[in-house]
């Protein structure tokens, strides 16, 4: 099996410093966060420019070229509601380190993001939901099948659709957690890839608790077959857990320095 893929989530316009940097086209805050995440071991970096209704294509093009030219063409995930911005980003994207990821499609209003990924030979995060949280795994599976069939119909490889089970917040939906893990197992049993916003599970918890809960969640999810997650790679405990799970799963050959590489 291949190593677990981490998608660093810290270039996100919800952060005031990043939003300001994007608005002013100031490279430094963005490069700083890119470097931190790459140094911490992120495979992909997510670039979230928000809705970016006015200048999306131009902003995404700038961000992609800025990050890739400074960090040896690090592979990127494109995260915005503006489809034109994703297309513009992919048009200047260097694929030498990996295909671009479109983040994300779902089985509802955002299903056309799958078409966008297919048309641009990209990987697509495919949320197994339509409107709101699915009531059970049968419903999740029906969305998965809908997305899978559409993607295959558009000529995508199944391995390029990374199904997102939709991690749920424990504070409020504690009783649904095992369903999510079970659904990850159902995805894995079909030989499909998966990803998701892992830290949703610990939303609202005290800051010192979140790395602990995220680490436990990622370990259980990897046991069930999760192949990727959108995470904060600067969370050392989480990254150490992922690297250790990769060793136990025989995804990576053990060496005494495995945490350093």
């Amino acid at each position: 099996m291949a190593k677990f893929i981490t998608i660093g989530e810290r270039i996100h316009c919800i952060s005031p410093s990043i939003r300001k940097a994007m608005a002013e086209r100031d490279p430094e805050p963005i490069l700083k966060r890119a470097k931190e995440q790459i140094d911490a071991g992120a495979t992909y970096l997510d670039v979230n420019i928000g809705p970016a209704e006015s200048d999306g294509p131009e902003l995404m093009t700038w961000a992609v070229q800025l990050i890739q030219s400074n960090f040896d063409n690090v592979p990127l995930a494109f995260d915005t509601a503006n489809k034109k911005a994703i297309e513009a980003g992919i048009s200047v994207y260097n694929r030498s380190k990996g295909k671009p990821i479109v983040n994300s499609a779902d089985a509802g209003d955002r299903i056309e993001y799958l078409d966008l990924a297919a048309a641009n030979d990209a990987i697509c995060v495919a949320l197994c939901s339509k409107a709101g949280v699915p009531s059970d795994n049968d419903e999740r599976m029906s969305y998965l099948m809908e997305l899978l069939e559409r993607g295959l119909g558009l000529g995508m490889e199944a391995e390029d659709m990374w199904f997102d089970p939709l991690f749920l917040v424990i504070k409020g939906m504690q009783d649904k957690q095992m369903d999510v893990l079970e659904f990850i197992r159902m995805i894995a049993e079909q030989g499909l890839n998966s990803t998701g916003g892992l830290s949703n599970n610990s939303n609202g918890m005290p800051k010192h608790i979140r790395p602990i809960m995220d680490s436990a969640m990622v370990a259980m999810a990897m046991m069930c077959g999760l192949t990727s997650a959108i995470v904060n790679p600067c969370d050392l405990r989480l990254m150490e857990t992922i690297k250790s799970c990769d060793i136990i799963k025989n995804n990576n050959l053990y060496a005494d320095s495995y945490l350093e590489i």
Binding site: L253, Y254, A255, D256, S257, E260, I261
Partner: peptide, 14 residues
């Protein structure tokens, strides 16, 4: 020693 093989390479690269 397969694990040492990797470890030595890591150390030399470091």
């Amino acid at each position: 020693d397969i694990n040492l093989a990797k470890q030595l390479n890591v150390l030399m690269m470091q």
